[in-house]
């Protein structure tokens, strides 16, 4: 287990920022922390990196407690904070040497670490340049380069793509995906497509609590609106079809309209999965069923449902 938390909480004054969060992350997963701004993503990450101590509960990284064995945890984690803080007066080289030195790397190991960062983050072109002169995309890469310098087991990236232009976003995502082949990665985001593009698992956080946890397909399945079915039927009488469908137990409403000569398109809203009964009904009524589908709900819908509306996404 790479990360294990038990009822992890952080309160600022009385206000809980993170409220009894329990989860575990296996080695090799790429996990997305998804949630609206202020949901507690950053606070959770800060507790995992040992920057903020929890108010109550525990968290362990690779079996080391984040409070009592903070130095051990910090050695194993690469962390990129939300705003990508860097020193504009240093060059990329000076900065990486500085971080590497504080990571305890020296000589050949430092050179190898820097080489790896430069290689995987594409920093060769700007290696000798001052950080202050770099574009936002390059700064983000320097930030990630800094985080992987010591080849950490766990990479924690707080909103690694915020503020980047679309092509830079794609670059950073590709970088994260390729890093995720060898490492455990946690990234936070409020961009849903990012989670779909990069992560194997998503934790949706809202108001300091985890409201959903699972693989993306899994989440879609569990939160799919079993309620909606669309079908295309070859039948003559749409009133008859409407009546028969409406008579099925569990159906809330039926909306049917002719779709070309002899075809009827119908939308059925129901409380449960009605694909089987609808199919049997079609067979027994002698309808030719051309289409029967249950649209999977998008991550956006799940997200909005779980975080209580579209306050800020």
């Amino acid at each position: 287990m790479m990360i294990e938390t038990q009822r992890l909480s952080k309160r600022y004054g009385r206000e809980p920022a993170v409220d009894e969060v329990t989860f575990s992350i296996r080695r090799g997963e790429i996990v997305g922390f998804l949630g609206p701004n202020g949901a507690g993503k950053t606070t959770t990450m800060r507790m995992l990196t040992g920057y903020l101590p929890p108010t109550s509960g525990t968290a362990a990284v690779a079996g080391h407690d984040v409070v009592s064995e903070s130095l051990e945890v910090r050695r194993r984690v690469g962390y990129l904070p939300e705003t990508t803080p860097l020193y504009p007066e240093l060059t990329v080289r000076e900065y990486l040497e500085f971080i590497g030195g504080l990571r305890g790397l020296a000589g050949a190991r430092l050179a190898a670490g820097i080489e790896r960062s430069v290689e995987s983050c594409g920093l060769r072109k700007v290696f000798g340049k001052g950080i202050g002169e770099l574009s936002k995309g390059y700064r983000q890469r320097v930030g990630i380069g800094q985080a992987i310098l010591h080849d950490p087991d766990l990479l924690i990236l707080d909103e690694p793509t915020s503020g980047l232009d679309p092509s830079q976003v794609v670059e950073v995502r590709d970088l994260v995906s390729s890093l995720g082949k060898e490492k455990t990665v946690i990234l936070s985001t409020h961009v849903l497509s990012e989670v779909q593009a990069v992560c194997s698992r998503v934790l949706i956080i809202s108001a300091g609590r985890i409201v959903a946890d699972g693989g993306i397909t899994e989440l879609r399945a569990t939160h799919a609106q079993a309620s909606e079915l669309t079908l295309l039927v070859k039948a003559a009488d749409d009133a008859d079809l409407r009546a028969r469908l409406g008579a099925l137990p569990g159906v809330r409403s039926v909306h049917a309209e002719p779709a070309g000569v002899g075809f009827i398109r119908a939308r059925v809203a129901a409380a449960e999965d009605l694909r089987e009964p609808v199919f049997r009904l079609a067979v027994s009524s002698g309808w030719t069923l051309l289409e029967l589908s249950q649209p999977a709900s998008s991550l956006e819908e799940i997200f909005l449902k779980l975080t209580g509306g579209g306050k800020s996404i």
């Binding site: 800060r46 910090r74 050695r75 984690v77 962390y79 904070p81 803080p85 990571r103 305890g104």
Partner: peptide, 8 residues
């Protein structure tokens, strides 16, 4: 400082 404080 956040980076510095999360280094060993």
């Amino acid at each position: 400082f956040e980076v510095l404080a999360t280094l060993p």
